[in-house]
Amino acid sequence: DYYEVLGLQRYASPEDIKKAYHKVALKWHPDKNPENKEEAERKFKEVAEAYEVLSNDEKRDIYD
Rank of each mutant, 00 (worst) to 15 (best):
S55E: 03
L54T: 01
R60H: 04
L26P: 10
K59V: 03
D31P: 03
K45I: 04
H29C: 07
A48Q: 05
P14F: 04
F44A: 13
A50V: 00
V24S: 11
E4R: 13
K43W: 03
P30S: 05
A50T: 00
H29L: 10
A40K: 01
E15S: 08
N33T: 07
I62P: 11
L8Q: 04
V24R: 09
P14L: 15
V53R: 03
A12P: 01
V24T: 09
S55K: 09
D1W: 15
H22F: 12
Y11A: 13
E38Y: 01
E46A: 12
K45T: 10
V24H: 13
R10V: 05
L8Y: 00
F44Y: 13
G7W: 00
Y63A: 05
A40W: 03
R60G: 02
H22E: 15
L54V: 02
V53G: 01
E52P: 00
F44M: 13
V47R: 01
P14M: 14
V5W: 03
P14K: 14
V24Q: 11
R60M: 01
V47W: 00
E58A: 14
K19G: 08
K19I: 10
Y63D: 06
N33E: 05
V5R: 09
N36Y: 06
K32T: 09
E58Y: 11
E15A: 08
E58K: 12
Y2S: 09
G7R: 03
E35C: 09
R60V: 04
K43D: 01
Y21R: 02
R42P: 02
K23S: 14
Y21V: 01
D61L: 13
E4K: 10
D31S: 09
F44Q: 14
L26R: 14
E15L: 06
S55T: 10
Y21E: 01
E58R: 09
R42G: 08
A40D: 05
K32H: 08
L6S: 02
R42A: 11
Y21N: 01
Y11E: 15
D64I: 02
Y51I: 01
G7T: 04
N33W: 07
K43Y: 07
K27N: 05
A40E: 03
V53P: 02
R10C: 08
K45S: 10
H29T: 08
N33F: 09
R60K: 14
Y63V: 13
K23I: 07
K23C: 11
N36P: 03
E46F: 05
H22P: 03
G7N: 09
E52T: 13
I17L: 05
E52F: 07
E35Y: 04
